[in-house]
Design a binder for these strands. Sequence first.
RNA 1: GCCGGGGUAGGGUAGCGGUUAUCCUGUAGCCCUGUGGAGGCUACGAUUCGAGUUCGAUUCUCGAUCCCGGCCCCA
Length: 411
Amino acid sequence: MKISKPRGTRDFLPEDTKKRRYVESILRQVVKNWGFNEIITPTFENLELFTLKSGEGIVGELYNFKDKGDREMTLRPELTAPVMRMYVNEMQAYQQPLKLFYFENCFRYERPQKGRFREFWQFGVELIGSKRADADAEAIALASEMLKSVGIKGDLHVNNLGVIRHLLSVLETEHQSKIMRLVDKKDDTGLNDFLEDINAPADLRMKLLELICLTGEGAVTKARELVGNIPEIETFQELLTLLDTYGVEYTINFGIARGLDYYTGTVFEIYAEGLGAQNQVCGGGSYQLIQLFGGGDVPSTGFGLGFDRIMEVCELEAPDDKPVVIIAKDSTRLDAVKVATKLRLHMPVYNDLMKRNFKAQLSHANNIGARHVVIIGEQEVEAEKVTLKDMSSGEQELLTIDEVIEKLTCK
RNA sequence: GCCGGGGUAGGGUAGCGGUUAUCCUGUAGCCCUGUGGAGGCUACGAUUCGAGUUCGAUUCUCGAUCCCGGCCCCA
């Protein structure tokens, strides 16, 4: 009787894990160099944390459960809300801006497909305390740099929601939200119908439809013509100038909306090729969530990277471990253990655990890709040395253990 | 929740009503107990699960399940 793994989860074999850890280590190095500090939050949280942020509707997509104390819990579906909760609970007195990052698994009860799993990993950054374009620009530049560091060419689209919000400000709040959702979905007919339903002014309707199609060069100028010289445009222009200075390539896209009300201004998405329908590898922007969780009026900006999607398109190869295999005879196995113990302070070492004969041990060493083997037989024990054999050249020489360490570690 | 396409040893496959279920690879061992990569031999190991049709099902039908792709959703 075999037990299969739960739907939408994955086993990572040694080769997979090695590559994942390697890519992870590169991303970690980049965020650290940008001055961000890692945090860890619980794997499960009170259900309310997420319904508060995203509405009751998301419960259907959650891995939620009641614990033995009858509390409504859920495995975390994302990490922005937990980080905000953590900030409100424990970090409000910290120096701002807070520069935080996390790399954790998340859980969503969804139908698996390419680039979508029920357990997946998010690498995210939250920058708390600054509402300036400088913070948004740093977040975007960092996201861009992270992808670049692992060899992924992403297509970055940026927008400032303040512009479209300004245009819609004459409408009721609920209508505004609804329109933002329709724009996010790129549901043009739905949008038209809705504008018809609420009897939106013809002038606004025309401007809106024109605005959300604005993209690429000259889009800012055209937007300015549509909505006038409002502060939101100036902020957006400031962000773009900063991005230019960072050397980040981007596409202006007034059609990116993000369906949720807590996004305040800057929003961005990054897409990568080769991922099928789920081609977004990064999404983020500036948002206002802290008040919702009982904190002050603190602006934040952040983004999440879909680590699994990155792995899907990342072509980096993890460096080789260069294992050393010790080959011994039955009569010298204890000597082999002693030598292994010394060598293990410096390098990965394999010892025979199968009581293989001499030839089979050598063959096994070859099969697992050993660069070198260390032979310990009666002759070597007698001479208080070992034989080091280079597996690719076949050359071998009699050396002391210290000489072996010296020789293998300096390469 | 919806729509397609799939599921045969650990991995890759052939068979498409009756076979000892094919071959490649893998793993372990032997040929060969102080020198690997080749070769030969041996062993291990599979029809996703459950119903139905049939004398007989890996093969046909239905259901479940999982995988792959897409829709919805995407915090």
